[in-house]
Design a protein around this nucleic acid. Sequence first.
DNA 1: GGGACATGCACCGAA
DNA 2: TCGGTGCATGTCCCC
Length: 734
Amino acid sequence: MKGVEVGDGGDLHANDGIGLGDTGGCAAGTDTTGFDAMEDEAMGVDDGEIWLDRDPDDLLDVHDNSIFYDDFPPLPDFPCMSSSSSSSSAPAPVKSIACSSSSSSVSSSSAASWAVLKSDAEEDEDKKNHRDHHDPVEVPPAALSSTASMEIPREGPDQGLEDVDCMNVMENFGYMDLLEPNDIWDPSSLFHMDDSHDFEAEQQPQQEQEQPKPQPEVPPQQQDEEYMVQRNDEEGQRPSEDLAMLFFEWLKSNKESISPEDLRNIKLKRATIECAAKRLGGGKEGMKQLLKLILEWVQNHQLQKKRISETQISHFPYNYQDPFATQSPNPNPNPSPIPNISCNPIPPDPNPCFPSPHWLPQPPYMTDPSPVMVPPPFPPMVGYMGDPFANGPSNINSHPYQPTSEYHILDSTNTWQPPQFSLASPYTSFSESNLPLAPAPQPPQAFAGYGNQFTYQYFPGNGERLTRLGSSATKEARKKRMARQRRVFSHHHRHHNHHNQQQQNPSPDQQARPAGNEGCNSAAQANQANWVFWPSAGAASNSPAGAPDAPQPPPPPAAAAVDRQAGQAQNNPRQLAAERRQGWKPEKNLKFLLQKVLKQSDVGNLGRIVLPKKEAETHLPELEARDGITIPMEDIGTSRVWNMRYRFWPNNKSRMYLLENTGDFVRSNGLQEGDFIVIYSDVKCGKYMIRGVKVRQSGPKSESKRSGKSQRNQQTASPAGNGSTPSLSKRTTK
DNA sequence: GGGACATGCACCGAA
DNA sequence: TCGGTGCATGTCCCC
């Protein structure tokens, strides 16, 4: 059995993901959310599955703030997600939890199911609201947080009747608070079953339940028990310890990774539970299955968080300068990894297909050119030689849980693809390869609870792919997923360990990945030269120069979403992430051509930069005469156009390609030795674009530059080598 | 051994 | 004299 997707109005789908949908009032619609673009195998999502096709009013017509949880970062925009409702695309703040029954009959019955993840504080507030509304079935505050306690979502004063109706139908429980932190490890507290308990007595007449009744004598556990008992009673079954044992076993196996808060933060509306349980077979088994699903989901989620944490630890040892930090600092550097459960499909981003990342760089005229040192979300990829801006699914891999939109290299036409990185690219591009680089993609995700849909939602980052965190309903699916994740993770580590040493020949025919949608004004979105901060001593071994003071070739600022297949994708997920974090919004129309780590001679007074021969010959116009041609290059950072001369020198039997008149560019960008430039071409406009990326060591500036030759030797000896040329990298490997 | 590349340096013109 | 231009050379690494 695979995951199930349950919908009131929907079918029971065998999916790898979870979908508990009460689409009753959620209208039908066409799934244009890009859902179909997701990994069907993984998601098990059927085309046409309706997620968000709820009347926005149903979602928004909420009168009780208690159902809103703002502590979670806004849901990333779901690219191109469309709903039957025109308002679904309207920019609006996304409430993490915005589902509730509306006054409409449809919504009252259909919107009842939703999953909620919220902070403790808000949870408390929520509970308080529940109490304040005298919900008939309200359980004492203590019970609200108790494990498996059931809460009745407050729908607002004006919805009381409908709530009652709904409750009559849905019985008495609205939420299920899975766990009480204090009792989390005590299954008995969660599923305490007192044989002496009079289940019949627990069955309160509906009339009574509709009236607020203090239940001081009823301990939270008993409340929980009541629910469980009631459920079993309704099903003509005695409460079973199965659930308790199931939960207990699960807790034992996951207590190290699952915090009480995590469990406690999961709330499922009763309707969802009801429906889900029913869809899962009903009765005890249904509940059991549902519990499994929930626990599995929690577990997976925790695993992902853990993985991310590990990734962050291992990948963020560096500092780098983020020029965009000052302009658009990450408002939520540590967003809750807990998936949002939101019924509000409306993305905050006015651009439905391009969620505006918080770090989206401001236009140059709005930005503070002075770079600011900020903790790097992603360390620059050591030895990264690829196009930093090349977009690809890799982002997810690089940092699955970046809550920001960094992963979102959103292509309106993007279809979800499994995390990949390119082996075709000499520097490991994600986009081309099917080998996941990082831990299984676990991008910002949402445990979407649109309507009664109880499903995983993938949030494509900026053009990034959607990743799913779907928990498979079956162990089989789970095993597959875990295996896949392990593969990805292991591969990522392998890649990480070797990417500095590996050098892959760039494929000349690499094509730019369709990226941005900004046409030719991509430069306007970019700021000045990127700042990448390389580790000082610690990363010395990885430094291109092989010396502590040798700056790493920063992950080339993936100025544009470069097509891995096209570009010399030497992409590193982290680099990509860093690039995006730096504010570069991937542009589809930018094709990465080449990059060059600047040498002393490149940044000297000569005003010329030696270009890597192979890349130059491959991606730049063929030169007939040694005088070469003048190429206007737009500075991506400043939008300034530099007329640079591209030429070559006869060198022995070969040629040495140069980019001249670079002095001003270098100076204006403050480029120094070790920094690098990246040259792109705008596939739409046909113009060339250049970007300078500054690389600075995080630690105290190392000793003064050594002699040019010795430094050069050091750099060439570095595994990271020059990001600019494969040959250099190759050298470093030896 | 050959290719690629960093850079040294000679030459030349302008100040 | 200084700076720019262009070439030559040395070093490193790959084949």
